[in-house]
Design a binder for these strands. Structure first.
Lengths: 345, 345
DNA sequence: TTGAAAGCGATACCAA
DNA sequence: TTGGTATCGCTTTCAA
């Protein structure tokens, strides 16, 4: 039976202790289960905890000792891009299984938003920070250096991170795709992606891609949808604009599979045959690819694994276990059949 | 120039005060900008704040006054279902614009996970809680009642919520879709969705749907993919299983548009014409629908708006402004052309 | 096995 | 315009 936990008044440890007829230290020990009390005492205390509906105030705990909290700040550019939703899911599931919580920050691809969020979240004494991307404002870097907590930079693999890093080499993955398409004989290649104020992993991929294509004697025409989220519709209308401006395009590489599907729909709707009239390549091996009639040419990236790995590295560091501070998660090209094969080419 | 903020030692307000040659109360006042100090004093203090790289410890602030934190706990079933990713995005953007942060909880559709998460997150003294769904465990309800903080239950509209509610009537939205399809002459209708331990909004939609279909002389054959996320592939193979078990199906209603697209792909791959051979209806008006050649029959639901509205109600309550505690956000049927129209039917 | 006292970093309240 | 002191809920330390 609840006694008097109905009102707004919060039940504190000392109230529990008083009700149980012991000191708050004793009650504290019982609750932490660290031993040093009799079975009888324990029973008395636990009974009152139950009756009063006591919930510990972890703020005070962190505040008192020099223990850190159980929450981890996680910054993500946006959730409309399915890639990041998956990364976040991987992070939060894994953190949760170790009793930690994610404090979310959607930075909308701007360093200033990230900096503001970092300042705020640090003021809550988080156990650590997981940040998407390797680029940060000067102010942010300064705070991060002085924070004295574990920091994992994810997504864009960084061999000399602020602290730890897990991700993949986006330049190389773009380069590999470029080399592959050029190798198939494509020369006038389009790229459709989104554009934001901050250079990000997609920008890096594009740079690698251009290098490979241009090195192979091809040419890249870029179509960037400003301030848009990398999902279906920008892929569709980005393709429309691209093809309107350049009629020679023989193949299009997209920022991710969702955009590629949007583009594929545009091309199909215009009567273009894939891959006979135009090649289509995506990136990320997203869920949509699993239901398409032709295997989409893409790049497989273990999004969920990146999130999980980031969380694991974080937990290890919090628990003072040894961890490698850099982890290259890799990628692999999926040839697919939305580009011509070598024999037709 | 930084002086000595390099080491792990955290800079506290009293260190700033000492460095500036004032008391910590004065420093505190300057930092809060509440007035009651000279311009000169302010300058001295701010200079030191900058030099030392001082970051306030908000834990202590909350702890000292009876202010609450800026955390808002947000529980979401999963992020693989795009519907929820959008809701979360709406919530976090809006909360962020008011200086609040989301503490995420992925409950994976189980009440037990939700209860565990609620217990933990409450111990961090959040300013409020936003919960997806109207069903909670007895233990959770008990804690929520005693928490004394604003609580918004979202998604499934609830006219007698624990505290506040915003969402839509899923039963009615299912019913309307059922009535619509029956009205078009469909009689042997399939339903493809996912299934979890906990009854949820999708279950409620299905109930409304069945009622309308059966009331109109039709019949519903259900195909539930166990413990799966409501996205493309379960839609695909759920359709395969459904059609294998019942060859009379003339129309299929899906849990959401992503699943509907998966099913559409299965049907098309099997040579079925949409809508001549079989009708397809989704739910949610998700981004994928914007790039399909035929308008997908669906139900428009303002996911982002629900998230924003939830955050707005939360902020209003935190700021002690008046708010209606229930908000029915509505829905609207999109006829589309993936079902036959009245004249063909 | 138990308890009393000090302290974590900030703010409220009162006094100067 | 300033500063001293008590206080929030809990843990650490030391003493009984």
């Amino acid at each position: 039976m609840r006694e008097k936990s109905s009102k707004n008044k919060k039940i504190s440890l000392s109230m529990v202790a008083e009700a149980a007829g012991v000191s708050k230290m004793t009650a504290s020990r019982v609750l932490r289960g660290e031993g040093g009390y009799s079975a009888e005492t324990k029973e008395k205390v636990m009974l009152k905890v139950d009756q009063l509906g006591y919930l510990p105030n972890r703020l005070a705990t962190v505040f008192a000792g020099d223990q850190s909290s159980t929450f981890v700040g996680v910054s993500i550019p946006d959730l409309g891009n399915e890639v990041f939703a998956q990364v976040l899911e991987g992070i939060d599931r894994k953190l949760g299984s170790f009793g930690h919580q994610s404090v979310l920050g959607l930075t909308q691809h701007t360093l200033q938003e990230e900096e503001n969020w970092i300042r705020t979240v640090l003021s809550w004494q988080p156990a650590g920070l997981i940040l998407t991307g390797r680029t940060h404002s000067a102010g942010a870097i300064d705070m991060l250096r002085n924070a004295g907590i574990p920091i994992v930079e994810i997504w864009d693999f960084n061999s000399s991170p602020l602290d730890m890093s897990v991700g993949l080499n986006h330049f190389d993955s773009g380069f590999d795709m470029g080399r592959y398409l050029v190798g198939l004989g494509y020369r006038s290649i389009g790229y459709v992606g989104t554009s934001h104020d901050t250079a990000n992993a997609a920008t890096t991929r594009l740079a690698g891609f251009c290098k490979a294509v241009e090195g192979g004697g091809g040419e890249v025409t870029k179509q960037l949808c400003l301030h848009d989220t990398a999902t279906f519709y920008p892929g569709f209308y980005g393709t429309e604009q691209l093809l309107a401006s350049n009629t020679d395009i023989d193949c299009i590489f997209y920022q991710n599979d969702s955009m590629a599907f949007g583009g594929l729909q545009y091309c199909t709707g215009r009567g273009l045959k894939i891959p006979d009239d135009i090649g289509i390549a995506g990136w990320g091996d997203l869920p949509i690819a699993s239901v398409l009639p032709k295997r989409l040419t893409s790049m497989r990236v273990p999004h969920l694994r990146i999130g999980q790995a980031a969380a694991e590295m974080m937990i290890a560091r919090i628990s003072d276990e040894p961890v490698a501070n850099c982890r290259d998660i890799g990628f692999s090209l999926i040839p697919g059949s939305t580009v011509r094969n070598l024999h037709t080419g």
